[in-house]
Computed example of a mutant assay.
Amino acid sequence: MTTTLQNLLSLSDFAWGRLRDRVQGLTDAEYFWEPFDVTWSVRQTADGLAMDGFAEDGLVIAPEPPPFTTLAWRITHIVDILQEDRTATWFGHEVDPADGQPPVPGSAAEALTALDHSYDVWRRRLASLSQEDLDRPMGAIASQHAEDDGTAFALHILDELIHHGAEVGTLRDFYRGLHPEDPFEGALSGEITPAEQPTLVAEAAAAQRWELVPMLAELGFGLDEKTANGFTAAHLAAGNGALATLRFLVERGADLSITDARFNADVLGWAKWFHQADAIAYLEGQGTNAR
C-alpha cells in the first residue's frame, strides 16, 4: 500500500521534473525580460549589501492588482518557498545549517543552480518526515495555520511549486513567441557543427520539422542523440506517425533499441503507445532491428 509520504514525494518529483525541463537553456535575456512598464524583478542593489548584490522588488503589502513579475522574480520566489526555514521548522524539525538561506540569483545560470539546490533541500526535508509529522497539527509556530496538520502544509508547498512552475513555463512560451529564433539556421549554414550541438536531429523531430532531419543527417548530426527530455528522433517520428522520416532514420541505421527517459520504451514501443498503426506495421516488418 502506498503511503501518504510516498504520494507526496511522487507528486513533488513529478512537478519538479516538469519545471526543471521548462527552464532548461534559460538565458539572462529571458531571466530579466520586462514586457511591461511596471514589472517586479530582481535588481542589483546600489550598496551591494543584499545577498549576491541583488534583491527582489516588492512591498510588505502588495498593490491590487499586483504588478507583473519577471522570470527572475518568479524563480527567486520558488527558491525561497522550497528552501525557507519553515519547510523544516513547521514540521517540528531542525534546520540543517548546511542547507543555507535562499539566495536572490543574479543571472540565469545562478538561478538554475539555486533551483536545483532548493529542491534538494525541500525533498530531503520532505523525505525525512514520519507519518506522525504529517498527522500532527503544526501548532503555534505556524501562526494562523496552527490547527493544520503537516500533510496540509506539504500540499501547500507543492501547490506553490506547481502553480508558480506553470507560470514560469508560460512566461517562457510568451518570450519565445515574441523573440522567434530558428535554432537550425546556424547548422544549415555551417556556423554550428555536430560537435557543438549534437542533438539537433532529435530537436528537429521534437519541433516536428521533419524536412530538416535528412538535411541535418547529411551534415553529420547524429541520429541517435536524445533531446533534453530523453527522446531520439526515431522515437518522435514513430510516436507522431511521421512515416517518411521514420523510414529515412531506419535506412540510415538509427538504433531502434534505445529506450527513452519517460516511458522506458524503444521505438516500436512508442509507435504502439501512441497507436500509430502504419509505424507499427513498418517497424514490425523490420524484424529484430525494430526490437
Rank of each mutant, 00 (worst) to 15 (best):
D57V: 10
A15G: 02
R74G: 02
G190K: 13
A204P: 04
D28P: 08
M1Q: 09
F91M: 08
L246K: 11
S130H: 09
D116S: 04
D13I: 06
F36W: 15
Q83G: 13
P105N: 06
P214Q: 09
L49R: 08
Q83H: 14
V168N: 08
L246P: 05
A234Q: 10
H179Y: 08
A242Q: 11
G58N: 07
W16K: 06
E203Y: 07
T45C: 08
H145E: 03
R86F: 11
Q144Y: 14
L212G: 03
L115W: 11
D120C: 09
H163G: 00
D278G: 12
F91Y: 15
V104A: 00
G106A: 03
H235C: 02
A98E: 15
A142Y: 04
R247M: 12
S189H: 01
F153D: 06
E167K: 10
L171C: 02
D260Q: 05
E218I: 03
H164S: 01
V121A: 02
L246Q: 03
A271P: 13
H77G: 04
G92A: 05
F32Q: 03
G269H: 09
F91Q: 08
E185N: 09
D47P: 03
L9G: 04
Q44D: 01
A187P: 08
E160Q: 14
E225R: 10
A205R: 09
L283F: 07
F32H: 06
T70G: 01
F184P: 02
I192C: 07
D57F: 02
V60K: 11
A50H: 07
L11G: 10
L129C: 10
A127H: 08
P180F: 11
G269M: 10
D21I: 01
R18G: 04
P65E: 02
W16Q: 11
L256R: 07
Y175N: 05
F32K: 06
D173W: 01
I157P: 04
A109S: 14
F263S: 03
R252Q: 12
S41H: 09
D133C: 11
A206H: 15
A114L: 12
T113Q: 14
Q83D: 15
T89H: 03
T2A: 07
V42T: 15
D173A: 04
V121D: 00
F14G: 06
H179F: 12
D99L: 06
H275G: 04
A206M: 14
R291S: 13
P65Q: 04
W33H: 14
F153V: 03
D85L: 08
F36N: 14
G239W: 13
Q286N: 00
L9E: 14
D37K: 06
N229L: 14
A46K: 12
D255C: 02
H77I: 06
T87M: 11
W270A: 05
A281C: 08
T89I: 02
D224H: 00
L8C: 09
V95T: 13
G100S: 13
L49E: 10
R291P: 00
G253R: 10
R262M: 05
A237G: 06
A205I: 09
D120G: 13
P105M: 07
G177E: 03
V168I: 15
D37G: 08
A98Y: 13
S12G: 08
E64V: 07
L256W: 05
P102C: 02
I157S: 00
V95C: 07
A281Q: 15
H93A: 12
A98N: 12
E191F: 06
F14A: 13
A261I: 06
R123T: 04
A238E: 11
P67E: 03
